[in-house]
Amino acid sequence: MEVLKLLSLFLILHQSWSDLVTPTSATESPIRINGGQPVNETVPFQVSLQLQRRGRWQHFCGGSIISAQHVLTAAHCMEKMKVEDVSVVGGTLNWKTGGLRHRVLAKHVHPQYSMSPKIINDIALVRVTPPFRLERADFGAVQLGGSDRIGEKVPVRLTGWGSTTSATSSAKLPDQLQALNYRTISNEECNQKGFRVTRNEICALAVQGQGACVGDSGGPLIRAGPQPHLVGIVSYGSSTCAQGRPDVYTRVSSFLPYISQVINQDLSQ
């Protein structure tokens, strides 16, 4: 299976980021999150996970603030990382400038995370210091919602600094946060389109030219409406982005007990 996750890991672990990704005025992988639009309003829960390369911090994955000390992201973003090499930047729409940088104290990759024979349990929590200043307007924890499973044809919103080109071999990261509004599809339809998803995943699909891409991994999928909440974490998709195939997300509602367990464990230490 050709997956964004594998490509993200390849980019991060096997070459200098600056050799593979050319930052532009539009982030990492899709055509503006492939077909999305630059975000102008505050997204207080959105963060950029960054890795230092050649003396510069570089964006490699997204994440969502879920408590004063915790970020929710994809397991594949953090599995191979040393916590001392990663920082978290929040409170900004531009991953290069502004915002506040936080050091990573600990990572919690789901103990049953696996990439073979298929991708499962692609979820991780990152604990930061100092705590996020949630009293500020540009910071805030996203609501996780309840255990109800999101169905098909539900309006959702993806935000991230993923590549604005469809070819992952020449990924270009926008500086400005991007957003894409589209809809979920059923897991059955997602499987029919070539993916082997589990009940712990959600798929979303837009028209050709729109979708997630490398660099969006770990970022938030938000259910739209009067009480927006986090329903998905960018996990994987096709190696060529936004070509009319689904994007696959970790289903947050399936992991609420795990998330609570990790947070409570950290806070009790």
Rank of each mutant, 00 (worst) to 15 (best):
E152Y: 08
Q192C: 10
C203D: 09
C61T: 05
L177V: 13
Q58H: 15
V197P: 14
G140E: 02
E189G: 04
L7M: 09
S268R: 12
T42Y: 12
N121T: 08
Q37C: 15
N34S: 13
S67L: 07
R196P: 08
H102P: 00
G35E: 02
I119C: 12
E152S: 13
I233L: 03
C203G: 08
M1V: 13
V88G: 00
S116W: 13
G36H: 07
S217C: 05
G36W: 04
Q269A: 11
N40C: 11
G91S: 10
D247N: 08
Q37N: 12
V231L: 12
Q227R: 14
L267D: 12
P30C: 15
D138S: 12
L49A: 00
W95P: 01
N200I: 05
S170L: 12
G244K: 08
G162M: 06
G211Y: 02
Y249F: 13
W95I: 02
Q208N: 06
L49N: 02
A179Q: 11
K82I: 02
V128E: 00
R136T: 05
E135C: 04
G62W: 14
V128N: 00
I66V: 15
S147L: 06
G36Q: 04
M115A: 14
T159K: 08
I150E: 14
S29A: 13
I66R: 09
C61I: 03
M81W: 09
L7K: 14
D216R: 03
S18Y: 14
E201M: 12
A171Y: 08
G55Y: 10
Q227Y: 15
T92E: 01
N40K: 09
